[in-house]
């Protein structure tokens, strides 16, 4: 998937565009207000459409208050073995484990591939072999080989996270200005010093961008993995709820997946800001 490195470009913040009669920027307060109104209107439409005898049957889309009630209930009452908290923690545990493992292996691998020829000859072809296959396609193999326990899920999510970790670590080394390496050398730095202090440190923002993509990929893949092989977790809840046509629970699971995904993304972005405050923005 070329997504890995390319998405860093997508993530680049927009340049503020100069004013033009065509697309006049709104004041910040005004645009927040419009956003809030739009969201409220959407919920009201949802509510009206799902009123008893309304246009949409609850089997197709349940009313918002039903979803909200179910959400609150699930926070305290177990559903399929644990509360919503329990399922969320199960999901987060697998994701963070696989994501961290991906970083521990992916960063040195990417740096090695970009820095040493020999490593590249061995690792790169294998990596290219694995890369085009969507991580999900490994799930059946992982289940056959590793069973339906945590290990299989961690393995699949790990593969999903590994690709951006490696790609961005490679990119981090590749995008180093050779002049910086020259400058370090004329100041007396040794090869290991150049690698650690100049190459890795300067490339840190790119690696951190990879970390963010890896976390997003991991979360996406985990949801699917939990639908195929799990006994807990939000994806497991979603699929089981849909099997018994329990749309309230299904929407609660989907919403929780979305909120946690957003929270992870925001967390890692602020962590990156904190770790590499010098990064070009």
């Amino acid at each position: 998937m070329t997504v890995a490195v390319r998405s860093t470009r997508r993530a680049a913040p927009r340049k503020p565009s100069t004013q033009s009669m065509w697309r006049r920027e709104l004041a910040r307060g005004k645009s927040v207000l419009i956003g809030v109104i739009a969201a409220v209107v959407l919920v009201i439409i949802w509510y009206l459409l799902t009123l008893p005898g309304g246009l949409i049957q609850p089997l197709f889309l349940p009313p918002p208050q039903g979803v909200a009630t179910q959400f609150i209930t699930m926070l305290s009452e177990p559903y399929l073995g644990s509360t919503l908290w329990g399922h969320a923690i199960a999901s987060l545990g697998v994701v963070l484990e696989a994501w961290a493992l991906g970083g521990i292996i992916g960063i040195p691998l990417g740096i090695a591939v970009a820095w040493w020829k020999r490593a590249r000859w061995i690792v790169w072809p294998l990596f290219q072999l694995i890369r085009p296959v969507p991580p999900l396609a490994w799930i059946p193999l992982a289940i056959v080989w590793l069973g339906i326990g945590d290990v299989a899920r961690v393995a699949v999510v790990f593969v999903a996270a590994l690709v951006p970790w490696v790609m961005n670590s490679i990119e981090a080394v590749r995008s180093i200005d050779p002049l910086l390496v020259s400058a370090a050398r004329t100041l007396g730095a040794s090869e290991p010093q150049i690698l650690m202090r100049v190459v890795v440190r300067t490339g840190l923002p790119t690696i951190l961008a990879g970390a963010r993509i890896a976390l997003g990929n991991a979360w996406t893949t985990l949801v699917a993995a939990e639908m195929l092989a799990a006994t807990a977790g939000l994806g497991f809840v979603a699929l089981n709820a849909s099997r018994v046509l329990d749309l309230d629970t299904l929407l609660v699971a989907m919403g929780t997946i979305g909120i946690l995904g957003a929270a992870l993304s925001i967390l890692i972005s602020s962590a990156a800001q904190w770790i590499a405050p010098w990064a070009e923005d």
């Binding site: 709104l26 969201a39 299904l250």
Partner: peptide, 23 residues
């Protein structure tokens, strides 16, 4: 339109495609 749509879009965007499979 951007002000109205962006918040909703951003919220929905974080729900992975697979989470939509059951529904």
């Amino acid at each position: 339109v951007r002000a109205a749509v962006t918040p909703i879009f951003e919220v929905l965007r974080y729900i992975p495609p697979f989470a939509w499979v059951p529904i």
